[in-house]
Simulated scan of single mutants.
Amino acid sequence: MVRTLVVRGLLLGLLAGLIAGGFAFAVGEPQVDAAIALEEAAAPAPAAADGHGHSHGAEAEVGRPVQKAGLFLATGLYGLAVGGVFALVFAGLRGRVEPRSDGCLALAAAGTAFVAVILVPFLKYPANPPAVGDPATINSRTALYVVMVLVGLAAVAIAVATARHVHAGAWPRWVAVAAAFLVPVVAAWLLLPTVDEVPDGFPATLLWEFRLASLGTQFVFWTVFGALFGWACDRAARSAAAPMSAAAPS
């Protein structure tokens, strides 16, 4: 069963990744092109070529057409990796947490993963287009982002544990779950340093259009993947139940 779930997760993750790549290509790439144009306009003139026609100080770069094609490769591989991990986590949660329906559990797990792994870090450290961010701080910024991902996952784990141990009624239970999730997240937002490396004069509209496109790409991926995975699980459950119903005595 676990092997079937993993294969299902890999295939549907790949499909969802390609669909998300299409969204990123249509919505996000125009902002990337605009940001690159601003970066090139602000860059110093390239070094003069020597007598043999060779320029100095400029390294060969991957062209934009290749980068755009690589976008689908990147989102496809991302979908494969996420789909496999999600399937393993789903197998561990199945039958142990609510909801009991495979389809509803898949949607709930995908939504929770989006909030914990994508939304929580995004609200503190949103994505930036080219020309935004100091290359010298990329390691520290990456570490801070990973910390926020871990905080989001820890907050979800605390919220789930709270939901399983609080039995004081529906509303008190949900209030306790929300508080258990928000306390570590808000504490991390307040305690971790703020990163603001947007250069002066960078268009605010372009910045937020890029950030929303980045968040939208992840939202499309997790929505499509959760819906497809849940549908496939429910379909498999119905197919498995059909022979048993047919064999039951009338």
Rank of each mutant, 00 (worst) to 15 (best):
A41P: 09
A41D: 14
A69E: 00
G83F: 08
G70N: 04
P99E: 05
E61G: 14
G22N: 03
F23Q: 02
H54R: 06
Q31E: 15
V89Q: 00
L93Y: 08
L88F: 08
I36Q: 09
G51Q: 08
R64H: 12
V62Q: 08
L18M: 14
G53S: 03
E59S: 15
F23Y: 15
R96V: 02
G13R: 08
H54Q: 03
V66W: 03
A45K: 11
G28A: 07
G13H: 07
V97I: 07
A37Q: 05
I36E: 04
A60E: 15
G13Q: 02
P99V: 14
H54V: 05
G76E: 02
P44G: 05
A16P: 04
A35D: 06
E40K: 12
L93I: 12
S101G: 11
V85W: 01
V97H: 00
A74K: 06
R100H: 14
G103P: 11
L71I: 03
D33K: 15
L12F: 05
F90R: 10
L73V: 12
L38N: 03
E61C: 01
L93W: 09
G22K: 07
A26L: 14
H56S: 05
R100I: 12
V32G: 01
L10P: 11
V32S: 02
F90I: 06
A24S: 13
G17C: 03
A35Q: 03
R8T: 05
G92T: 10
G95A: 04
F23P: 06
G76V: 07
V82H: 12
A37F: 01
A41L: 14
V82Q: 13
V62K: 13
G79W: 15
A60C: 11
S101K: 08
G9M: 03
K68D: 09
L18G: 14
G95C: 01
V85C: 04
E39W: 13
G95P: 09
A42E: 12
A45Y: 13
K68P: 10
R100G: 15
P44T: 01
A16R: 01
H52F: 15
V32K: 03
A81H: 03
V85A: 06
V62L: 11
V82K: 09
